[in-house]
C-alpha cells in the first residue's frame, strides 16, 4: 500500500474565519490523507517552513478576508525559492472570479469557493495524484497552464 499523502491546510494572514479550513481538513482526512492543520494567523514564512518540516506534498490555503491576491503568490514564490516548487498549492474561501487568473498564474492549481463539496475537493486531489504519478509536474513552481476546472 502506498504511503498516505501529507497535506498542510493553512490559514495565512490575519483572517480569523476557520470553519471552511476545518471542514476541508476533515474532508481530506476522511478521504484517507494525513492532514496537518496549522491553526490561524500564520505568516507566509511560517507556512513554508511547516510544509518543509512536515514533508508535505500538498498545501491548501484558506482565505476569506480578501488577502489572497497578496498572500497566495508570495507563498508560492517562497516555496520555489526554498526548492519546494514540486509542492502542489491549492486554495479556497472568498475569492472573486476576477482574482483567480492571477493566482493560477502564480502557481495555485485550484481555487474553491463557498458551497464546494468534499467530493469535488477529493476529485481534485485524485487528479493531482494521477498527474504526478504519470510524471507531469504541476507543483507551484512548474511551468504549466493546467488548473482545476479549466
Amino acid at each position: 500500500m502506498a504511503a498516505p499523502l501529507r497535506v498542510v491546510v493553512a490559514k495565512p494572514g490575519l483572517d480569523g474565519h476557520d470553519r471552511g479550513a476545518k471542514i476541508v481538513a476533515r474532508a481530506l482526512r476522511d478521504a484517507g490523507h494525513e492532514v496537518i492543520y496549522t491553526g490561524l494567523r500564520r505568516t507566509p514564512e511560517q507556512i513554508v517552513r511547516i510544509v518543509m518540516d512536515e514533508d508535505a506534498q500538498l498545501l491548501g490555503l484558506s482565505s476569506l478576508s480578501g488577502a489572497h491576491a497578496h498572500l497566495f503568490p508570495i507563498i508560492c514564490q517562497l516555496l520555489v525559492e526554498a526548492e519546494m516548487g514540486d509542492v502542489v498549492v491549492f486554495g479556497g474561501g472568498i475569492i472573486p472570479t476576477n482574482d483567480r487568473p492571477a493566482l493560477y498564474e502564480a502557481g495555485v492549481r485550484a481555487v474553491f469557493g463557498p458551497g464546494t463539496t468534499s467530493t469535488e475537493i477529493v476529485e481534485f486531489i485524485e487528479t493531482v495524484t494521477e498527474k504526478t504519478n504519470s510524471g507531469e509536474s504541476i507543483g507551484c513552481g512548474a511551468k504549466t497552464d493546467w488548473h482545476w476546472g479549466q
Binding site: P4, A25, V35
Partner: peptide, 11 residues
Amino acid sequence: TGGALLGDRLR
C-alpha cells in the same frame, strides 16, 4: 479510512 487529522501544531 487510513486518514488522520494532525492538529498538535495548532498550539
